[in-house]
Write a protein that binds this DNA or RNA. Structure first.
Lengths: 201, 201, 201, 201
DNA sequence: GGATAATCGAGACGGTACGTCGCGTCTTCAT
DNA sequence: ATGAAGACGCGACGTACCGTCTCGATTATCC
């Protein structure tokens, strides 16, 4: 979303047209909706945005980046009702529901595709992962941390791994595309996580 | 008599050459190793396999399918030491280690890419998922089931979700490509899963 | 057997199926009519004739030859009313009319195409030329010869060239495909040829 | 003002590269010389011209058209010594010699092949015929016309047919590829044409 | 009459070229 | 200097036929 648009100097010549940037993203988004990531070709984007191909390349380095940028733009901040007086596990449930709602859509699958397809080292891929996954991980980590501090959760849980277990389950089902991805599933996840698998003596 | 017994093999014409099929897969595999899925072009495959392009298309409908088939062929059954006298959680650890070992490689990432990129409805995609993920899920489910029967694990855990939580965490890190994916991680996962997150009163 | 004098072709094995040969030619002919020489592909011919491709190659060495053979088969001997009591020039007219009638058709153009496209040295090309052009030339030469002998025509005309002038004009118009190719044209040709171009003193 | 003025040249975008066009034609020409029309494949042309295949298709619609264009480019105007004080028949001889010289070469046969093979209705085929045959016909017609006006030739000859008789004979021998195609032949043609076939009383 | 052998329909094979599509770059003219 | 337009070199796509080969199943003639 917030790209690094450096504007330190008064530029000479015609300034870049931010309207073109928007038109490109809108075009890419509509193509995404209509035909998935494969339909977002540079030529289709440029044509639909009434923009020259070099203009697209002026903003993003390649096809991949445009798709990612289009998907990034679709991200709503997810609100996070943030009633922090609730229990940590309720907050987790709330967060996972948001995630599930966000990803149980065609767009969600596209995001997963891009996550899997992107060169893991690239700048935009980093931003993409950060936006869609790491941010969620950070939220989850914060929730767990608070739970530990409030004594609701065990002190010696591995927070990183715990978050991955919850988010990972959602992404796995998203990738597989067959098992249900809904509120019930969230309940099961949190239920399992809360009590653990081991029998009590 | 019933003359419609089942005659899938009309068996006319020159039989398909399994040698060509193998050569194609070998070529695709070597290209995969050298340059990733993007390097597996039909022309490169055909040329390296000393095979005509139409022959490749006779066996698989498109580029994607060839890559999947090549990856499918690389799957070793992983042995699964199957000392079933051990505890369910030890078995889980063992299984996850196998999975981690299998996927914490370039090939592993390629598999994840294909999982994410494939049309979820296609035949080969189904086989692909079945081979690489569903099979693991079934193994995990079986382990948990045995644990429950032996009284090691709680009776009311949601087995499906539990397996997804373990495998999902691994796949998530694989997709993200940054957090470590190793034996320590497996320990953390199983540790979290065993005791649960909730504090004991 | 009593009539076994010498059987140089002691045929063993299954004899060639003349029915297949006919079916192939019929198929090639119908394809020719429907789509021109370009439509006569080996696969289409074999399929339409219910014949294996190797069977086609057993009779003709390549695609070209099949087309030629199909066209050869369409040649009717043209009857040549052969009322030889008429004047040489009338006979010429008659012959040219036959030629025009024969070639002023799609098939006629196909024949011209093959004449132009064929490797001039090949066996079948020779037969093809012989059949469609040289035979006409021989007829024309015979007519002129008779005319000379009967005193109707000048003695010192170059017979070969004269025939080529008449037939060539027809083929030229056939190739060009625009100037009319009909009885009037034949009249003009013979008229020009009869009197010559030079003015009489 | 009338805004529908006629704007065939919108003149936007990068202009077509005439250098590429030339390189393509040069490549096609060299391939023609080396291997005949069959060797002029789009891929060979593009590769030899250091040009992308789509660029070739931007200029010509298919393989056929490229071959024709290459042949068209080879046509030298033939000078036509234009000593118009000579007799019409001498001029005819001169012209036919030029034609013979032009076509009694491998390139000449290629031209004939293309003439015979081309779709007679297509734009390029029209140009091709115009260039190689109709232009010659027009020249011949002009010569005959002058001859008539000067009283050298009969007034009532059919000029069109007469020209076709001369040119047609040349093309016929070219197609047949066996009878000689040389100055002697030209002499015979003009000789026959001059005096006519009919005996003088 | 049983072996032998050439031919049959069928169709896969290694190839070559087709004509198309998309990539990312370059070049022009107009703002 | 940007912007749109669009041609460019490149390379892969998936298809169509080429002419050859390999099957199992027929049909003859020869032993």
């Amino acid at each position: 979303m917030s790209d690094v648009v450096k504007k330190p100097r008064a530029k000479r010549g015609r300034p870049r047209d931010l309207g073109a940037r928007d038109a490109i993203l809108r075009a890419a988004r509509s193509l995404l909706d209509e035909g998935g990531p494969g339909a977002v070709t540079m030529e289709a984007v440029a044509s639909r945005a009434n923009v020259g191909k070099p203009t697209v390349y002026r903003w993003w380095p390649d096809r991949h980046a445009v798709v990612m940028a289009a998907l990034l733009g679709e991200a709503q901040p997810a609100a996070m009702a943030s009633a922090e007086q609730r229990s940590a596990l309720d907050e987790l449930k709330e967060q996972l529901l948001q995630v599930v709602k966000r990803f149980a859509t065609p767009t969600g699958r596209h995001i997963a595709s891009m996550l899997a397809a992107a060169d893991p080292g690239s700048e935009l891929a980093r931003a993409f992962r950060g936006h869609f996954v790491l941010a969620r991980r950070d939220e989850g980590r914060a929730i767990l941390q608070r739970g530990i501090e409030r004594g609701e959760l065990r002190e010696d849980i591995d927070v990183e791994a715990a978050v991955d277990q919850l988010l990972g389950a959602v992404f796995l089902r998203l990738l597989l595309g067959l098992a249900p991805l809904d509120a019930t599933f969230v309940e099961q996840l949190v239920g399992n996580a809360r009590l653990g698998l081991a029998a009590r003596r």
